[in-house]
Design a protein around this nucleic acid. Sequence first.
DNA 1: CTCTTATTCTATTGTTCGTTAGAGTAGAAG
DNA 2: CTTCTACTCTAACGAACAATAGAATAAGAG
Lengths: 229, 229
Amino acid sequence: MATNRPSGRLVKDELYGHFSRIGKAVAHPKRIELLDLLCQGERSVEVLADRAAMSVVNCSAHLRVLRESRLVTTRREGTRVFYRLADDSVCTFFGVLRDLATDRYAEVDRIVQDYFNARDGLEPVSRDELLRMAGDGDVVVLDVRPAEEYEAGHIAGAVSVPLDDLQARVASFPEGAFVVAYCRGPYCVLVPQALEVLRREGFEARRLEDGFPEWRQAGLPVAVGQESN
Amino acid sequence: MATNRPSGRLVKDELYGHFSRIGKAVAHPKRIELLDLLCQGERSVEVLADRAAMSVVNCSAHLRVLRESRLVTTRREGTRVFYRLADDSVCTFFGVLRDLATDRYAEVDRIVQDYFNARDGLEPVSRDELLRMAGDGDVVVLDVRPAEEYEAGHIAGAVSVPLDDLQARVASFPEGAFVVAYCRGPYCVLVPQALEVLRREGFEARRLEDGFPEWRQAGLPVAVGQESN
DNA sequence: CTCTTATTCTATTGTTCGTTAGAGTAGAAG
DNA sequence: CTTCTACTCTAACGAACAATAGAATAAGAG
């Protein structure tokens, strides 16, 4: 009996062929960026194209690839088509992929150090620390993502102040408040910019170690829609 | 202030570019098969080419891609070059990828059902069950992988009987023994073939739910080299 | 030094992928 | 029915990838 009977080879080829469908789906930077955005929640093609800085046609083509790999599904609402992750396990997979890249590529860590830590200079606040602070009640939790992302889901008790509005609204914050800002994930570029504004205005501001998807996946309290505070 | 400053876009492109290096590495079925083999332990180019049913030249080219993505590293010993995973986290990533594919593609489950379960007809034995049975001492644990894979690492107490030798050596097994066979992972094709032989010879034989890498990653007892039993 | 083995490099060819432009479709509003 | 918006499909073309053959290299044996 040969070690690899023909049928065994055929089965293997078919199995690994399916495994590689996932690989092909995440073999392009823009598709990974789209997955990252979709880890936040459902988004329309137009919004995804804008956030990922690509043409709508090109974005649609990449989303098609993701849909054919069954990592995302769609829902039509009027003229708009909304894409979302097919399952929460896709978000988990993205997290493992991101962590592996951080682990294997020192460059990633360098980029993060240079861009994020060099800008805010302070260690990020962990999820546990934030929960403790929130229990003590002397912290403002700031969601600096665009308003519609906040409404699709945010950390319970957080205030929505999109980065573009921050400069205008920062004056209304209680004097001497301690502020913790978060956005889409550990490498989102919105928070460093927000911290810059906040510190310039004299607030003590730190960033949450990671973003909303990680918070949600950890099973911590989230809220949807507007909050009346 | 614009939501996406140019520097933010550049940083994002660089980050997602690095993330996609992992994706590109696993975008080909043969490279995934090579990673799966390397999850077992270190292997030479020749052995990998044979196991994955590809030419040595082609195998070398794919290994080069994996090495450039830093998922594997090499070690030279005489004229031979040995490849191994760069880190255990690569094995974890492979597991998550495999599970996601199983989750998302019903075909994978169907293949597994058709090929594996239809052949052995019985539920696999879980790791915990096997440990309990081993404690009671009335079970033969069979490693049906090629001898050099056994020697590179195996379940402590397991007996090495490569599939090709099984027919010849099955006669020497204790009459009426209960046999649990394992190989490379949940989808390895060696075990179903082994169970077929064992049952034909009148033994009660089941398969372990998954293979050696999962056992090792679970922190359960492993051994290296020959065992004197 | 030559020969052998194991592996890698180079060049070539065919195939797939990514992007863009332009046309086409589905649904809502007038 | 027409018009608008949001999205998708088709075709085209350059870029990247995969497989193969043949040459080249590195290390050990004779």
